[in-house]
Design a binder for these strands. Structure first.
Ligand SMILES: [Zn+2]
Ligand SMILES: [Zn+2]
Ligand SMILES: [Zn+2]
Ligand SMILES: [Zn+2]
Lengths: 148, 148
DNA sequence: ATACAGTCTACAGTAACTATAGGTTCAAGG
DNA sequence: CCTTGAACCTATAGTTACTGTAGACTGTAT
């Protein structure tokens, strides 16, 4: 009952797909697993757990580099968790920024879509607005224009 | 007053950067511009306008393929704008989905960060939660686990 | 005339996978 | 025991939308 799984089982169990697992191994995020006589990967519980950690963090939007850092922190249980918390706060902040931006985009797009009453392209409010940002209500989504 | 600009000027005027403009040309999104005697690109107003259109649509999150489609629609002013509106609605829908997801992520991350009172990694709530999704409040961010 | 900013091409790199080709291994059914 | 087919293997290329680099050339200002 050493509980070793093939890559496909691990994939199903974690919701990762097979190539992704191999990819994580390749970039050094997952340790090299034991191989069967026929050279197939065999994973034990600890590998599955690590992959679940990675997967969960990815689902929460952490970039792989942050996950790498979190893993190496997780391997030092006695140290302070300050650095780990900082990574999470950073991720939170990043998500906050993206949310704000998306909210601005959504309202602008809503306005665009709503204003077009259908008809010919020549009169389409969508096309027109895309061609001219000054028809937009906010400046959120355009970088400042600098006159040369 | 033929109003021709070098690539750098166009870049400044549109907020695009120079390589991006060359990239758009390369993938056929922008037409080949006239060249100076010394082989440097020279853009007229219509090119600048097209690039502004592209840039604006990108800022609103449209993928390049959608922009390609919008441009080819914009070139047929007499046709119905139904297709253009559909592209915009699709983009709006996509943004809505991303917003929902990000909102879920944010609340989960907030909870995580908030619960950790600092201390050793061994007791860190951030690390612990990442290792075990069942500590999460919602299932939004994890694919259904299928038992093999 | 010389300096220096701007431009040119071509290519490599980024994030995080996903897909493909062409071959090998494993488990089950006949 | 043999065959079939799913699952696995490696290696490589493709995806999106750029960004960065190297090494050479052009254009302009003093
Ligand atoms: Zn319309
Ligand atoms: Zn706008
Ligand atoms: Zn902590
Ligand atoms: Zn979770």
């Amino acid at each position: 009952m050493s509980n070793e799984l093939t890559i496909g089982r691990v994939a199903k169990g974690t919701g990762c797909n097979v190539q992704t697992i191999r990819y994580y191994e390749q970039i050094g995020l997952l340790p090299l697993p034991r191989r069967s006589e026929g050279n197939q990967r065999l994973y034990d519980d600890s590998a599955v757990q690590k992959l679940s950690f990675i997967r969960h963090a990815r689902e929460l939007g952490f970039p792989l580099q942050a996950i790498r850092d979190l893993i190496s922190l997780a391997d030092r249980p006695d140290k302070s968790c300050e650095a780990a918390d900082a990574i999470a706060r950073e991720q939170l902040e990043d998500i906050g920024k993206r949310l704000q931006r998306l909210q601005a985009l959504r309202s602008e797009l809503e306005r665009m879509v709503e204003q077009c009453k259908g008809g010919r392209i020549a009169d389409c409010r969508v096309i027109e607005t895309l061609g001219d940002h000054s028809l937009c209500e906010t400046d959120d989504h355009v970088l400042p224009k600098v006159r040369p």
